[in-house]
Design a protein around this nucleic acid. Structure first.
Lengths: 183, 183
DNA sequence: GTCTATATTCCGATAGAC
DNA sequence: GTCTATCGGAATATAGAC
């Protein structure tokens, strides 16, 4: 992995653990055993780093939701939800939910990139839900878009509540969501 | 309103708009036209301010959910949900969801107080849901606790998504939640 | 591409006068 | 209870050598 990639991975981890405004370039340089200035070489401003992290998150989402092939809508949904289950394992919140809290402290390019990611994710989830309903493996009374919003908000905030309470809130919610949708 | 109260109100506003680590004592002193040192007189450390804000949020919740009297479970639920609808009007996220993102940057007393608030809220919501089901005005297949987690995560993250996307996500989710529960 | 060194700004916090 | 003044530290960021 290149230094640039290592910075991106660590930066995302730090945002999802402590928040964007709670980590510094020093946190990154110390962990990677390089100097502050080396980080600034790759990402001159912190805003540049934030934008790049969001773009890599976006690309990762595309890979999971479009590049990979799945046999049916249920497998697609499970692949979608697995992202949140993995976050849970590492006690991280999701990037979108975490950054939403600090939204108004971001510069415009970061806000724009964040918006692109969350719009992409909710639209793809709506597609999956609609497809599953046509296949008669999913059942729900809302529109696909509204149901997608309900599911994604369950996941985002489940990670946040679990972190605070730590009493299996995430697992409860995760299982309830799947059970609710499966026809 | 005393200066102390004004600081508390403004501090909460700033957390919910920009995030805890994105505002400074200067932001508060400038807005209230007092000096930095005056804020430190009331809340020596920023941690003290955070704890006090969470305590006032906790007390407000108790007032809404226990001190007030409601005719039935539906009115109680609507009073509960109204808190989130009011946040939406002022484009603020809820205190719990916002602070969850920065959880691991807080000192222990703040984490403890945050936990107390969220535990209280979810328990009272579970009570409301259980009561409504007994009255046969609510219908849901999950346990009251799990359904409470589903509803509260919908509300918390709906405010976060709305802030990012700004395309009536909150209203969609809000109405879908009520429609879903009403028997 | 990484380093040393440093500029600059800001923040949390405190001492002591009024 | 609020002020002036200031300290110490940390954060973002840059200049210039290697």
């Amino acid at each position: 992995m290149t230094t640039r990639e290592e910075i991106l991975v660590l930066g995302e981890k730090l945002i999802r653990l402590k928040g964007y405004n709670a980590f510094s370039y020093h946190d990154i340089s110390a962990a990677l055993d390089i100097k502050n200035a080396a980080v600034h070489y790759h990402f001159p401003k912190k805003t540049d780093l934030a934008v790049a992290i969001l773009q890599s998150c976006h690309e990762r989402s595309v890979k999971i939701l479009e590049k990979n092939k799945y046999d049916n809508a249920l497998d697609k949904l499970k692949a979608f939800l697995k992202v949140y289950a993995d976050s849970y394992k590492h006690s991280m919140v999701c990037l979108v939910g975490g950054m939403a809290a600090e939204f108004h402290s971001f510069e415009a390019p970061v806000q724009k990139e964040l918006k692109a990611v969350v719009q992409y994710i909710t639209e793809r989830l709506a597609d999956i839900l609609e497809e599953g309903r046509k296949e008669k493996v999913f059942a729900f009374k809302e529109t696909p878009r509204t149901k997608a919003l309900l599911v994604v908000t369950n996941m985002i905030a489940a990670l946040q509540l679990e972190r605070i309470m730590g009493k299996k809130e995430f697992t409860d919610i995760y299982q309830a969501v799947i059970k609710d949708i499966a026809a």
